[in-house]
């Protein structure tokens, strides 16, 4: 037994040393820098004093919204808070709970069946904005697990980096589009991703995505968040994500089932149909969810059509309140 343990210890020590040496941070994928965009988004959130129209969700909204156009159409200051689906629905909802205030209107657009976030992405966000630590779970066990697993992941990043360097030496590409888009500099001051707008699009992946329909724990999570937002006097709405045609066609049954569950069980209004934001694959930049400039314009116009009556209603209520009750505190109307 003693011999076994000693040998195991020696081998373990040598191997750990090798892993630590190989896990020296040579490079990281662009998305780790891309999530730094949260700083711009929160800066805009804090700059606006009155009620705001906040778009939240994953990268489908980050890539697929022209906030300025929405702002001009709705006469409400817009913030595109959507960043990355990989942060997880919990992160997105916790962030919303933290930033909203009375009078805000929130439009949530998570990707289909969005699940728990990736800790490495959540941690990368926290590196840019330490205050975001409260948006995700980081107990001792999770942090310990991440600190071990991140070493292994880093070795993979280093391999990719070295291989990319080798490829470049053999056939240098003209431009590294991915590096330009997946960076914290990809955003405009509203929080929209704009770095990809004038770049040649890759199109949606050739193999359609397969969604596995089933129970989605996102519904109870959104419902729980909606209670908090309701108490704060916030109007909260759900919209379906932008999705490429081929993947939509491949998942009509799953999406229809989800739509039925959402309309039945969600506490907040679902203000569109899934097909409202389905566009041809050629209008996608590089994934099933990331729209190109043309796709983004189409989606923005569609969103304006959906959101405009709601913001008009909000303006009308505000006018009514201002005209009728001068000294009464603001009492937001229930949104259902």
């Amino acid at each position: 037994m003693k011999t076994f343990l000693i040998r195991l210890l020696i081998f373990g020590t040598l191997f750990t040393g090798l892993v630590l040496a190989s896990a020296y941070k040579l490079a990281q994928p662009g998305e780790m820098d891309y999530v730094g965009g949260i700083v711009i988004k929160h800066k805009r959130l804090n700059e606006i004093k009155g009620p705001r129209l906040i778009f939240a969700g994953g990268s489908n909204m980050a890539f697929g919204l022209d906030s300025k156009a929405v702002e001009e159409a709705t006469h409400m200051p817009v913030v595109n808070l959507a960043l990355h689906g990989g942060l997880g629905l919990d992160f997105i909802l916790e962030e919303l709970k933290d930033v909203v205030r009375a009078g805000d209107m929130v439009v949530l657009s998570p990707e289909y069946f969005l699940e728990e976030g990736r800790y490495e992405l959540d941690a990368a966000v926290a590196a840019f904005m330490p205050a975001s630590e409260k948006y995700f779970k980081h107990d001792f066990y999770t942090v310990f697990k991440y600190s071990v697993e991140s070493r292994f992941t880093q070795i993979g990043y280093n391999r990719d980096y070295l291989m990319a360097g080798w490829r470049k030496r053999n056939a240098p590409p003209e431009r590294d589009y991915a590096a330009e888009v997946y960076s914290h500099k990809a955003f405009n001051s509203y929080g929209d991703v704009v770095a990809h707008l004038d770049l040649p699009a890759y199109g949606a992946p050739k193999v359609p995505l397969k969604l596995h329909a089933g129970y989605w724990d996102g519904i109870p999570k959104i419902n729980a968040a909606s209670k908090v937002l309701e108490q704060r006097g916030v109007r909260f709405y759900f919209v379906f994500p932008a999705f490429c045609q081929s993947s939509y066609d491949n998942n009509i049954a799953a999406i229809s089932t989800l739509e039925v569950s959402l309309r039945k069980d969600l506490r907040i209004p679902v203000i569109c149909r899934p097909q409202d934001f389905v566009y041809p694959d050629t209008l996608y930049y590089d994934s099933y969810y990331h729209l190109t400039k043309t796709g983004r314009n189409l989606r923005t116009q569609q969103l304006i059509k959906i959101v405009q009556p709601l913001t008009a209603e909000l303006h009308a209520e505000k006018m009514l309140l201002t005209n009728t009750a001068t000294n009464r505190p603001h009492q937001p109307q229930p949104y259902r």
């Binding site: 081998f11 040598l14 191997f15 090798l18 892993v19 190989s22 292994f152 070795i155 993979g156 391999r159």
Partner: peptide, 14 residues
Amino acid sequence: RWALYTVLLFCLIL
């Protein structure tokens, strides 16, 4: 043997 185990473990990682 130890060298082989190391290679296989790195295969697992990579």
